[in-house]
């Protein structure tokens, strides 16, 4: 495993820890999109089915279990915890899952490497992950008050796939890693969707101002 890949995974892990910290410490999920969190549960469940089929490494299996467990835990907090769920921005989190899940699934049926159950779900998870942040970004645009933890959570979540892009370039040149258009293009689109957010996040950080996204 190269440094970019490890940095990507750690950034992803850190983003989730930060979100759980926000929820547990402040007993609030204000500014967090339940739609995006539910999409992540679907992404991890469809991608990590191979957990029971192929063993890669202890690291790989552990991370998969952590991502599955924490994503379900976050959704549980937002839907069922008696204090946390009252802080959820129900009226502003209006994006419909359906409009992302269905096109991604159809695309996975049409564009994939092998027509097998596991492979179709794996491809679907990559397509869905690339757009899963959209409900969250829409919610942030509507929010007048984005707290630091939420802003940094989204920043780290975006940075993680960006680091994977470097990992793929590195693997391509050093490990004879073949061209993998499906994850590469999905990852590129996923990172590109954050471009605007990155710009405003870094600008607010440099100017020591509160983060605000233009509507």
């Amino acid at each position: 495993m190269n440094a970019f890949r490890l940095a990507g995974d750690m950034t992803h892990l850190l983003s989730i820890i930060l979100l759980l910290l926000k929820i547990r410490a402040t007993k609030s999920c204000a500014g967090i999109s339940l739609k995006t969190q539910e999409l992540y549960v679907i992404v991890f469940m469809s991608r990590y089915l191979d957990l029971f089929r192929t063993y890669y490494s202890l690291y790989n299996s552990l991370m998969k279990i952590i991502f599955l467990g924490t994503s379900m835990c976050i959704v549980w907090y937002m839907r069922s915890h008696k204090v946390v769920r009252q802080t959820y921005n129900n009226d502003e989190d209006t994006f419909r899952h359906f409009f992302l899940v269905l096109p991604c699934f159809v695309l996975a049926l049409l564009v994939h490497r092998n027509f097998t159950f596991i492979e179709i779900l794996w491809t679907f998870s990559l397509y869905l992950e690339s757009v899963a942040i959209l409900p969250q970004l829409v919610l942030l645009q509507k929010s007048s008050n984005i707290d630091n933890l939420t802003g940094t959570y989204v920043f780290l979540l975006g940075a993680y796939r960006g680091l994977y892009l470097f990992n793929w370039v590195y693997r391509f040149f050093t490990e004879n890693h073949r061209v993998r258009w499906i994850p590469w293009l999905s990852g590129l689109i996923q990172t590109a969707i954050y471009t605007d957010f990155f710009y405003y996040y870094i600008r607010s950080w440099k100017n020591r101002e509160k983060l605000k996204l233009p509507a």
């Binding site: 191979d50 490494s57 790989n60 991370m63 998969k64 991502f67 490497r113 073949r178 994850p183």
Partner: peptide, 10 residues
């Protein structure tokens, strides 16, 4: 061998 080595990623 055409195993997808992307599957070892997360």
């Amino acid at each position: 061998d055409d195993d997808d080595d992307s599957h070892d990623e997360l």
